[in-house]
Structure formats: C-alpha cells, structure tokens
C-alpha cells in the first residue's frame, strides 16, 4: 500500500542522503521525496511517498526514527491529511488544436505559464489525483516535457477546539511506546 510519511529533520547538509540512502541501501521503494525549510530555519520538512506491505512500512518508519537527524516521523496515511503536487507540462499546440487544449487545461484549473509558436507550458497544483488526471488528458495531445514536483503533505486543520489541558488526563503514550 502507498504511504505518505512526513519527516521533520535537522536542516543540515547530508540529511537528504541519510534518508534516501536508507531507502536505496535496504531496497525500500521510494516514489517521491520532497524537502523544504519550515517556519523554523533549523528544521526542514521532508515528504516521502513509499509503497510497501505493513511490515515494510513499519520497518521504514522505525528505521527513519532511528536516524539521529530525524526529529519526528508522522505517517500521514493514518490521519486526515492534505496532499498537493505541482506540475508543469509543455504540450505541443499548433494553431488548429490550441484553443481545445487551453479549454481542457482550464477545466482542471491549470493556468498558462508560457506560450510559444508551437507549444504551451501549463502549470497546475492540486491533489496527486488531479495532477494525474490532468496529465492523462494532456497525453491525448503531445507532451514534450513534464516536470512534477513530488507530493507535499500535511495533517489537516483540527475541526474542534482542543479540550483544556486541566480537564483531561494525558493520553499521549510515552516515548517508550513501540512506534
């Protein structure tokens, strides 16, 4: 099954290769990996999309957590989460098909990023499903180039206020929990 794992990591050189090296060294599948800074400049967020059975995913999460530079591991697949991906696609568009292509792209909410004599560059950000669907439609025409940004994700906003701390006993398990 596909899992999206979000990591908070130290913003050091070499952290990316520690993470990707874990996957390549142990033969785990890595579908996409994105990284960028967070509101705290010393911390980066990485979003990994990986595929594996429950046992493999369990190992991946535990081994990621064992890496000293990894501050936090969250499996977003188990939570209410939001996923977005950015794509740019250059489609061949000669005078006869041009308006049809633009109309189709518009239906997906894609915008024109650049236009030339024989091609158009669209950009679209949306859920991975939307991006996938858009690319399938564009493939009906001739795609010259395509650049996908990889999935970024985060937990959704909480729909209810947090109960006040004093009224509820702590339910968070200790760090000794087997994660």
């Amino acid at each position: 099954m596909k899992h999206t794992i979000s990591l908070l990591v130290e913003n050091h050189y070499g952290v990316m290769s520690r993470i990707s090296g874990l996957f390549s060294g142990r033969g785990y599948n890595l579908d996409s990996i994105t990284v960028g800074p967070t509101q705290d400049p010393s911390v980066s967020r990485m979003t990994l999309v990986t595929i594996g059975d429950d046992q493999v995913i369990d190992q991946i999460k535990k081994r990621l957590d064992n890496i000293v530079d990894v501050i936090n591991v969250t499996d977003l697949t188990e939570k209410h989460s939001l996923y977005r991906e950015l794509v740019m696609v250059k489609v061949q568009a000669k005078s006869g098909t041009r308006s049809e292509i633009i109309q189709m792209a518009d239906a997906f909410g894609a915008t024109v990023a650049d236009m030339g004599a024989e091609s158009i560059v669209f950009q679209l950000s949306g859920t991975p499903d939307t991006v996938e669907g858009f690319l399938q439609v564009m493939d009906e025409f001739t795609i010259e180039e395509c650049a996908r940004g990889g999935v970024i994700a985060m937990e959704g906003a909480k729909k209810h206020r947090e109960p006040s701390q004093t009224n509820t006993p702590p339910t968070k398990r200790t760090t000794d929990t087997v994660i």
Binding site: I67, V68, N72, D176
Partner: peptide, 12 residues
C-alpha cells in the same frame, strides 16, 4: 541536546 535522539530505556 539532540532533538532527534531520545533512545527508549525503561520499557512500558
């Protein structure tokens, strides 16, 4: 102080 390094010691 290492944010990402807190080995479990005691068992639940």
């Amino acid at each position: 102080h290492i944010r990402g390094y807190h080995p479990s010691k005691h068992g639940q």
